[in-house]
Design a protein around this nucleic acid. Structure first.
Length: 241
DNA sequence: GCAAAGATTTGCT
DNA sequence: GCAAATCTTTGCC
């Protein structure tokens, strides 16, 4: 059997860095429909593991929800207090991963955008599982166990339906900050939409959980979703859309 | 050096 | 619908 994407479609191309180097809003819209990929784990033993085994564990998700954080002036952005030890990568080159711990319990994956010197990033809030669903479910179950719980029934399409859940399902943590998401050799990466798949519809809404920022930042329509996707994060009722 | 809040998720009332 | 879990980062004394 030939090595493929694991989804029946041809493997995608690395996501173009030039798109991430440009306007963050444009880049955020372009990321919808693109793929988040986690490479297969290295074989535990080098002798008896086949390529097929590794392909089977490759995780792929279709990005359906993102948020843009743009510049030091954005009072909702981690860059609002200027360059710090935590957010330094946001000020660097586009295409790099920025992963932070939120509420002391969950990780959030961001893609750095805009040229070196301009702090901006896109938060990956939700993806639809396409391949490696068993590995995602296994990661969710292992995480639940770590927290002293059992993973209740979760439909496949809800396995990565939130920014914290994306990181759990794909095994992403702060140690991955600095990874080049445009490099196919990186453990975590981005790929373009497969050839022939139509571009998704895009809807803009205010960002989630940024009430502390104040206007106009709280209401800025910088959250982008693929309307109707079953994998969208649950937004608290009362939030504006 | 200490206190407060956060780009979330889950479970119980 | 609300609060707890959990800890890093930031802001202020």
């Amino acid at each position: 059997m030939t090595v493929g994407s694991g989804s029946g479609l041809p493997p995608g191309l690395p996501f173009p860095r030039r798109i991430l180097a440009g306007d963050t809003i444009e880049a955020a819209r372009a990321l919808l429909g693109a793929r988040l990929v986690r490479l297969a784990e290295p074989a535990a033993t080098t002798d008896d593991s086949s390529d097929d085994d590794r392909v089977a564990h490759r995780r792929v998700g279709r990005i359906v929800e993102v948020e843009a954080y743009i510049g030091e002036g954005d009072r909702a952005s981690h860059a609002r207090m200027g360059r710090t030890a935590r957010n330094a990568v946001m000020f660097g080159d586009p295409g790099i991963a920025y992963v932070y711990l939120v509420y002391g319990m969950y990780h959030c994956l961001n893609v750095v955008t805009e040229p070196d010197g301009r702090p901006a990033a896109i938060l990956i809030r939700a993806v639809e599982p396409i391949a490696g669903v068993a590995a995602m479910r296994g990661a969710r179950a292992a995480d639940a166990t770590r927290r002293g719980r059992n993973l209740r029934h979760v439909a496949d399409h809800r396995l990565a339906a939130g920014p914290g859940l994306v990181c759990i399902a794909f095994g992403i943590d702060r140690a991955m900050t600095g990874l080049d998401l445009c490099d196919p050799a990186s453990t975590i990466g981005l790929e373009t939409r497969p050839t022939g798949e139509p571009a998704p519809m895009v809807e803009a809404t205010p960002r989630v959980g940024v009430g502390y920022a104040g206007e106009p930042w709280t209401s800025a329509p910088w959250r982008f979703v693929v309307p109707g996707s079953r994998a969208l994060s649950l937004v608290r009722s009362g939030s504006v859309s």
